[in-house]
Design a protein around this nucleic acid. Structure first.
Lengths: 177, 177
DNA sequence: GAAATCATGTAAGCTGTTACATGATTGA
DNA sequence: TCAATCATGTAACAGCTTACATGATTTC
């Protein structure tokens, strides 16, 4: 149930509505993807547990229900972080498609790999823009900020890995075509 | 429902029992992870659809029920491969932990990143051993084999990405500690 | 006034994980 | 013969995805 913890971590920085969170977790560039349905479900649970709570905003602010992590929520997060977790399992369609190369037209695979390279490249650019905008002066020394810096760096490294692989794979698969 | 297709792709090479598949999909190094329960569930479905079928082995062979993809199964796979698919979504606990750096001891995060680096390094070594053993003479020209080569290459690139990131992240997070 | 965006939900179905179970065969 | 491995399942639950729905506010 790491989504709950991802939400809590996201609510450390600033209060947000479910909608805010859904936008963030729905954007292609974010380190974690989730739909608004998942977000709201988790928020109800977290609210029932008392891990997130409403922020009493200016009464004039239209029906917004901004939430933030409570002291309990932060404690829950700290507790979870202290337990070791296994690396995520890879489930990439493109690899299944590679394994099917024996029964498909290599040109189709090359085209599909090209599409993937483009999508990963878009994300890479997005991450790099954020990094440049938020951390123009290099890695920050503040803990909270450094965490975001490291997450962005991981995203960039990840996307670059796929891009590099795609270039090599396309060259090799073209030869067989 | 890509697991079904991963199974079909795996049954292109050679007939296997559910147990064989479960071993393969359960090993840390494989490009896709699934438990034996998932495997058997998918195999029943695929069997009911006629996408996989039994191989009549030597009658002496003990209760083995080797399966392979049928013509229909191959057609299903080809059809699925022809549709574009989106890159997988990242769900890495370690990134949530990075975002929590504001409320935890940086030393704990560094230790956790070190654990992750080690696990990714084990997988990297595993993949590289397979690559060296199966493709000693470089990339193969045969389609089916090239597919496996590309999948292995992707695995290696992926693991290296995380290892590289971990080295940088540990250096930066140590400074703040 | 219409369209877009903000904001929040329910319901159904599929996928993945954990726990529990069974029986046959192989090797020490 | 005892343990390990082979081989196959059921059941329950947790997590994720897709489709369907509603109403308020903001912008053109």
């Amino acid at each position: 149930m790491a989504l709950a913890h991802a939400i809590l971590a996201s609510l450390l920085d600033q209060p947000q509505t479910g909608y805010d969170l859904a936008k963030q977790f729905g954007s292609d560039g974010f380190f974690w993807r989730a739909t608004h349905q998942q977000i709201y479900r988790e928020l109800s649970k977290l609210g029932a547990e008392g891990a997130v709570g409403p922020v009493d905003e200016l009464p004039g602010a239209r029906g917004e229900r901004k939430l933030m992590a409570t002291a309990l929520g932060r404690a829950v997060l700290v507790q979870w972080v202290s337990q070791p977790s296994a690396p995520a399992t890879i489930k990439e369609d493109i690899l299944v498609k590679c394994l099917s190369l024996g029964i498909i037209d290599p040109k189709d695979l090359v085209a599909e790999i090209a599409r993937h390279r483009d999508q990963h490249d878009l994300r890479r650019q997005h991450h790099e823009k954020l990094l440049a905008a938020q951390f123009a002066h290099g890695p920050p020394s503040d803990g909270q900020l450094l965490g975001r810096y490291l997450a962005l760096l991981a995203g960039i490294t990840y996307e670059r890995g796929w891009i590099d692989w795609a270039e090599v794979a396309m060259r090799l698969a073209t030869k067989v075509a």
